[in-house]
């Protein structure tokens, strides 16, 4: 009787310990850990990466400073979300008309293995001419993604290939390279275009 009670306390104690360890793991390393994504992107001036645009020019965050910028991640082997994003952005740029010429627009691939400079060149050619396609070394792509506080992940498919999960938001920066806001995927166009205008206006304010 007494022995059983002690065993019971022992089991409860061990259970509590396991539970405490589990809670600790959950909060620090597990699914409950704070995600680095969801933070605000760094200012372009604080970022550091070096890529190549679809015409073979060396580009980096400094390329985007001086004009308001719109930046997003994707990959050209993406059948659904990416062409939709590029089409949406092309539509926004059409709506902006001449104002679109005052912006830099960069589409950074998260799949440099397949998205070579040539592949990017062919792909962006089907969308608004303001959209530049950037690719480069894996490490440089990773540095860019980190700067934008974005994320990406290579996922094998059942057909033996792979697809990429990636941040689908569009990031907006003012002419000084400061992060203004982002346009989430699926956001209606009536919200997107005013947000872009805001980035354009901050440039004007900065200039006066």
């Amino acid at each position: 009787m007494r022995r059983r009670t002690i065993l019971g306390y022992g089991a409860a104690g061990a259970g509590a310990l396991v539970f405490a360890l589990f809670v600790g793991w959950w909060q620090v390393d597990g699914p409950g850990a704070p995600e680095p994504v969801g933070q605000r992107p760094m200012a372009l001036s604080a970022m550091d990466f070096s890529l190549t645009d679809h015409e073979g020019n060396e580009v980096g965050p400094e390329t985007l400073i001086g004009r308001p910028a719109m930046v997003f991640f994707g990959f050209t082997y993406c059948p659904d979300v990416c062409p939709t994003t590029l089409s949406d952005i092309s539509g926004w740029l059409d709506d902006l008309g001449d104002e679109a010429n005052e912006m830099s627009v960069a589409f950074i691939t998260v799949d440099p293995e397949r998205d070579t400079v040539d592949a990017m060149s062919e792909y962006v050619g089907y969308f608004h001419p303001a959209i530049r396609g950037w690719t480069g070394e894996d490490e440089e792509i990773a540095k860019a993604v980190l700067g934008f506080r974005a994320s990406y992940e290579r996922v094998p498919t059942e057909s033996g290939g792979y697809t990429m999960n990636h941040t689908a938001s569009v990031f907006l920066f003012d002419a000084a390279g400061r992060f203004v806001t982002m346009i989430d995927y699926h956001e209606p166009r009536e919200f997107a275009v005013p947000k872009i205008r805001r980035a354009l206006e901050e440039e004007t304010e900065g200039a006066t």
Partner: peptide
């Protein structure tokens, strides 16, 4: 038939 989803962090997957 596939489905694209975008989570609260803005990450799309399929």
């Amino acid at each position: 038939i596939h489905e694209s989803k975008t989570n609260a962090d803005g990450v799309s997957s399929m």
